[in-house]
Structure formats: C-alpha cells, structure tokens
Amino acid sequence: MFVTSAFAQESAPSADTSHAATGADTHSGTSVPAEAHGAFPPFDPATFPSQLLWLAITFGLFYLFLKRVVVPRVGGIIDVRNDRISQDLDQAAKLKGEADAAVAAYEQELAEAKSNANSIGQQAADAAKAEAEAARKKIEASLDEKLGEAEARISSIKANAMKEVGSIAEDTASAIVEALVGGKASKAEVAAAVKSVAR
C-alpha cells in the first residue's frame, strides 16, 4: 500500500488532467488489480496538500463566520428568551404575592368582623341577661317586701290576738278563781299565773 501511495505521489503532478490518467499511470507500475484505481484514494498522499489547504480555508472561514455572526446571534436569542422567561416568572411571583396578600387581608377582615359580631352578640346577651337579672331582683325584692309586710301584719295580728287572749285568759281565770275560791285574786297574780301557763 505504501509503495502504491508513494508511486501515486510521484506520478500525480505529471498527470493532473484526470484521476483516470493517474490511475492508469499508477497501476501500470504496481501489482494492484486492474479494476482498482491506483492508490486507495483516502491514503493517496498526492491529494493531501490540496485537501489540507482547502480544509484550512473552508473550516477557517466557517469558524470565523460562526464566531462572529452565528454564535452571538443564537446566544442572544437564547439569552433574550431566558431573560424574558425569568422576567415573566418574576412577574408571576409578584402577582401571586399580591394575590396572597389580598387573600390574607380579606381573611383578616373576615376574622375581625367575626370577632366583632361575636362581641356585639355577647354584649347584647350580657345586657339582656343583666336586665333580666335586674328585673328578677326587683320583683324578688318587691315580693320580699310584700312578704315582710304580710308577715309583720300577721305577727301584729297574732300579737294583738295573743294580747287579747292573755287578757281574756286573765279575766276568765280571775272569774274562775272568784267562782271557785270565792276570793278575789289580785290582777298581778292572775297575770303571772296565766303567763307561766301560756309558756
């Protein structure tokens, strides 16, 4: 193979009209089978300088173009998009924060209103209770008063009655004593006797 390559390299400059000519030149002097065209083309050093030169030119230009134009442009597109997305995300986060704050404010107000309502209700209930209590107390007091009055009246009636009972008993006792004994008991003695019995 290397023999063939070397041969091709030598023969290439002389036969630069077409590859067929190169092939004919080459395999006339080598043992390569007739259907092969000289050196195996990828290993033919005669083509190396030209391929390297054109590779350098094309790849160099390609590299410069990509570096100067394409990379900044595509990078720019992607950066702009990422910025935009993060901006949108920030915006969404901000809006969400605002919505959360609004919900929190609403809930706080709701809780306040609830507690207000509760306290108002409580106050009303307390006031009603107090009023009822007061009314009850008043009625109780008047009832007590009436009861007291009635008791006082009863006791005075009773005392009167008892007083009268005493004098009746004294009178009766003195009358009985007079009838039985015939003597006249003193009023004081009778009263003491009646009192000791009444005990």
């Binding site: 290439a12 083509t47 300088p49 030209s50």
Partner: peptide, 8 residues
C-alpha cells in the same frame, strides 16, 4: 498540488 477538487 493545491487543486480545487471535488473534496474541496
């Protein structure tokens, strides 16, 4: 040989 070839 720096010819412009089919490869180039």
């Amino acid at each position: 040989d720096l010819s412009f070839t089919n490869s180039a």
